[in-house]
Design a protein around this nucleic acid. Structure first.
Length: 330
DNA sequence: AAGTCATGCAACCGCATCTGG
DNA sequence: TCCAGATGCGGTTGCATGACT
């Protein structure tokens, strides 16, 4: 226990920093197919130039299917405050009370919002005591009764529509769709995806199933059965495919709009004619992919600029990723 | 318009703990 | 029981972005 350890990976040979969509997809695809029995060997097997720990973190915090994105409801924040009071910085224990929430997320919320709020509260309480006035707790602009948080053994359930929540200290940043250096989160995190449903629903905006379950859309997007139907994604053996996919990390915004339109169209249809739409969408998406991957002619000038800032491009493009036909079979 | 500060969050680092030979 | 490797966890950092001056 706690003995000296060899480094978990050769730091010179692993990529660091934000994950690209291609890496995400590769990780998801691999895990869906093979599971994640051994994180350490996973990157190599999956053909990822990542540390196993990095893969694990990425999976746990963002890619796994049940991860819940979106702002915390006031009730959740209240619950976190209470749990933190009794558990301290045991983020994983606290997170275990919130299905779909990760320790990292809760830790971040605590550090960025709740801690400050608590400090405010305490300061307020102290000043109230000093002035011998009753505490009115004005530091909670989003008053919530803790009794609206129900611990049901499955985690905290909201006593009210969490979608109407405001996070008292959390401003809705217009940058929420583009605050990350990586392209990846642009489409992975519903919280950060600039689509109309954002904030209106705690569940991802691409929950086509409509069953109220929390779905991680990129996970769905990579549902292997669907993938296999729509596009044959090879594993490590086909490096050419992956290198092509890597090239998708950064796409042109004009193309982004095309896909965005496609997504909007998909959404507006409400999937009433899901089956028919699916087919058409698949066809469209395949066409797009073919174009993108250069399988069918090229559109020269845009491709001459592959180094264009990934963030700029991803910002526009990736919100539409989940509308890919990878999803349509879900 | 440009520079600086504040904020939020994904991801990394390293130690603790678990597990199996 | 010992040991080494794997995983889990919490602290911290780096960076993109908006707000402010």
């Amino acid at each position: 226990m706690g003995r000296g350890r060899a480094p978990c990976c050769d730091k010179n040979q692993v990529k660091k920093g934000p994950w690209s969509p291609a890496e995400d997809l590769r990780l998801i695809t691999f895990i869906q197919k093979h599971g994640h029995g051994n994180w350490r060997s996973l990157p190599k097997q999956a053909g990822l130039l990542r540390c196993g720990k990095s893969c694990r973190l990425r999976w746990i915090n963002y890619l796994r299917p049940d991860v819940k994105r979106g702002n915390f409801a006031p009730q959740e924040e209240e619950a976190i405050l209470k749990l933190h009071e009794s558990l301290g910085n045991k983020w994983s224990k606290i997170a275990s009370h919130f299905p779909g929430r990760t320790d990292n997320e809760i830790k971040n919320v605590w550090n960025t919002h709740l801690k400050k709020r608590l400090i405010k509260k305490d300061a307020n309480r102290r000043s109230n005591i000093e002035t011998k006035e009753p505490s009115t707790n004005p530091s909670s602009p989003c008053p919530t009764s803790s009794d609206s948080c129900v611990e049901n053994g499955n985690g905290y359930q909201l006593g009210q529509d969490s979608t109407k929540c405001c996070s008292s200290e959390r401003k809705e940043s217009p940058s929420s769709s583009s605050s990350i250096s990586s392209c990846a989160p642009k489409f992975l995190n519903s919280q950060q995806v600039d689509v109309p449903m954002q904030r209106e629903d705690m569940s991802p905006p691409f929950n086509f199933g409509g069953d109220g379950e929390v779905h991680n859309t990129i996970y769905e997007a990579a549902d292997l059965e669907v993938l296999d139907e729509v596009i044959d994604i090879p594993m490590e053996s086909d490096t050419e495919f992956w290198s092509m996919l890597d090239g998708l990390d950064c796409l042109q915004s004009s193309e982004a709009h095309a896909i965005e339109d496609h997504f909007e169209a998909s959404q507006s249809s409400s999937f009433r004619d899901e089956t028919l739409d699916r087919e058409a969408d698949c066809t469209k998406w395949m066409k797009y992919l073919e174009d993108e991957l250069g399988l069918e002619g090229t559109n020269g000038e845009e491709q001459d600029n592959p180094q264009k800032d990934a963030a700029d491009l991803g910002m526009d493009y990736f919100p539409s990723w989940p509308s890919s036909p990878f999803l349509f079979g879900v």
